[in-house]
Design a protein around this nucleic acid. Structure first.
Lengths: 404, 404
DNA sequence: GAGTATATGTTCCGCGTTTAGACAAATTCG
DNA sequence: CGAATTTGTCTAAACGCGGAACATATACTC
């Protein structure tokens, strides 16, 4: 039961029905390909004539193409199979992180085309944009038309204005990232916060359609904790584009100091830095410089030691697992999502920590159902941030039209 | 950018455009009445002919009616004003609470018709349904056709099945409340969780249209803490109808024991019971029976003493205010709503506690914008739960059609 | 191999809805 | 009283779904 906003609505025009059905047909081709006109008509519960017209419109726009004839099951004319036309067109995804920046090229449905490349992130925006443009141009010489570039940024972003409002790890404040990059490339650019990009990636992943019905949440655990929320098949933005900051919901308001200035944030318990601090027996906010050994020691090293059976590493990891679960319980209680995705380096230790996470979730969730909420691990190889960045460009063509 | 769920979509039919525009027109009449056909055409940016047809359809369904002619501003024919037809039809709202049950009759747009009546809640469901039916029948003798009864229940509800899954304060488990009541009354009945009902009430309140655009959150502080979340003009349900349980998101996982079994829940810091416990210097979970004086002492009494300047009462209240703000900060960080509504007895002390709440919110919110999130107090006289219960019945006629 | 049954894809017409414009009715101003 | 203006209705055109007929293609049967 959705309320119509009487100050911002969309009237149905003569072509609105067609627009809606066209998008539905396009999405059905995407998820059910190979699929025939007759299949579409059955799926949509319309006559074949209507499906035929929708298809011919999509064909004329080169969004889909006719492939080989399918094998007829019984007798009768063989169907002509339809496919999303992802030939000849590509999308570039960029993931800017504090240390390195990653680039990936995919087709229109997000299928990986080349290898992921990366380079060291220069925190000077102008330099970074210049280098990014150079590398993307270089890569695109191997491909035909590029539909656009999507960029995932670790910080607060205003996608409509193309600005990075605040990215602490990069020391960026109110920077226009989109327009200079678009100008340098001559291709449209979209930018988005990395947590929301991850959520987008799962939402638009070709396989998972569970997510489009219920809500889902993506929790990304790395140096910080980023969260993206999907409600009704849409990423939750919030009034100021900051929705999803569950990382700074407290576990204990008297807990360890967090980078945000407050104390006891979830992030201060479960981020990689928090886990490492716990391992070294120091406070997260300890200002003393780490010695070179400590500084070079990464969360991957810690996980390796834990896997090798080192008690101290295992203990640090188990604590993180428990806190991770307690925080996930908050998300489950607050949003009751159909599914929670988890990404970040911690996922490589999932087999070690899963039982602890699960029992911690159950410990603080209100209902049995909540405690049993699906938790899906998204491995680093899936590159959720890059996939999400790609979705920024690739998804709008498949999105539902605005109506009512 | 909303994803179309390829396994659950709504195809546009021949009448879909009309359906959409009809609902838009109806909503415009609701919010802009008195309004003419020509006004509607201008507001909707369609021809007067279309507006005329939409209006005649709404007229034939008795959803709107033609009132007197309006005064023409300049020269030209005088417009015939249109109004929502709320004559002759009423809606009943019921608010079941642990101690008392309240009943309110309104017209179709939620305008109060009679006085609020109430009686003591009997926890035996059958007895309660019987008494409720008797009283509603009695009240309805004064009114014409009743469109339906909406019921707000303090607990977990499955609205589609009409069942109360779990209501701890009433000791109800998996009780069908809707069907027996509907059978006894011969009128359709809708039930909903009280937190979500409060959110609904604000969403559908005739005045506020801010809410329909951004997200909003209703926080109801009484014996427990209930939260209702509105996203995209729709109340967030979640996978198992339990979305919005921010009351059990922790402030400190080692904090006081909460009724839910966990420790340190926000509710255990800010509920009326928590405030009273703090005042009496006991633990919330203290099993010792209170003496009669303590048992009779309510939160209203405490607030009265605080207003009178009693230091102990003021201290208890101030602590609650601070914790209230800290928890609100979590909601702001998690959802970044355009507005937060607060209801419950605590609102009568708002002038005392507002500065403390506000500064606590700012203390833990990530951005300046977040810290400045609008907080609206909803006084008890507005009966948000009853209004929400009414909206359960009255709102569907105005809701946006399902599409795409 | 011819005929029949069946499935696919196209075409045509009916009908509902928006779009555009004309027209009558009502009202004010000169 | 006549011109200008606004409201509300009406008609024809354009567009899209709904339904059915038709051509095409394939497999099975006799």
């Amino acid at each position: 039961m959705r309320k119509i906003n009487p100050h911002d609505f969309t009237v149905a025009r003569r072509g609105t029905s067609r627009e809606i059905n066209r998008q539905i047909a396009l999405n059905l081709v995407r998820t059910h390909q190979p699929v025939s006109r007759a299949d579409l008509a059955r799926l949509m519960n319309v006559r074949r004539g209507v499906a035929s017209l929708l298809v011919s419109e999509l064909l004329s726009e080169n969004l889909i193409f006719e492939g080989a004839l399918g094998e007829s099951v019984g007798r009768g004319r063989r169907p002509t199979f339809l496919y999303i036309d992802s030939r000849e067109r590509c999308v570039v995804g960029v993931d800017i992180r504090a240390s390195r920046t990653y680039i990936l090229v995919t087709d229109l449905v997000g299928r990986q085309l080349g290898a992921v490349s990366s380079f060291q992130t220069n925190r000077d925006v102008d330099v970074l944009i210049h280098e990014l443009a150079r590398r993307i141009k270089q890569i695109l010489t191997d491909y035909n038309a590029c539909e656009g570039v999507g960029v995932s940024v670790p910080g607060m972003v205003e996608p409509t204005k193309g600005r990075v409002v605040h990215a602490p790890t990069l020391a960026w404040h109110d920077v226009n990232l989109r327009d200079p990059l678009a100008a340098a490339l001559g291709i449209p650019v979209q930018i988005e916060n990395s947590g929301k990009a991850c959520a987008l990636a799962q939402l638009w992943a070709t396989r998972s359609d569970v997510v489009a019905s219920g809500n889902s949440v993506f929790v990304s655990v790395s140096d910080g904790v980023g969260v993206g929320i999907v409600v009704n098949g849409e990423v939750l933005r919030g009034r100021h584009n900051t929705a999803g900051e569950f990382g700074h919901v407290p576990l204990s308001i008297d807990g360890p100091k967090c980078s945000c200035g407050a104390t006891g944030c979830w992030e201060a318990y479960v981020s990689n830095l928090a886990t490492l601090s716990r391992y070294f027996g120091r406070d997260l906010s300890d200002p003393r410089p780490r010695d070179s050994e400590e500084a070079a020691f990464s969360i991957e090293d810690l996980i390796a030691r834990a896997r090798a059976g080192e008690a101290k590493a295992l203990a640090a990891l188990n604590s993180t697992a428990r806190y991770l679960g307690l925080g996930l319980a908050s998300i489950v209680n607050a949003l009751d999502p159909a599914r929670v995705y988890i990404g970040g380096e911690i996922t490589t230790a999932w087999s070690l920590i899963e039982p602890i996470v699960r029992s911690a979730v159950r410990e603080r969730t209100l209902t049995e159902f909540g405690g049993a909420t699906e938790i899906h691990v998204v491995p680093a190889e899936d590159h959720p941030r890059l996939r999400g960045a790609v979705a920024l460009v690739a998804a709008p063509a498949f999105a539902a039209p605005m109506v009512a």
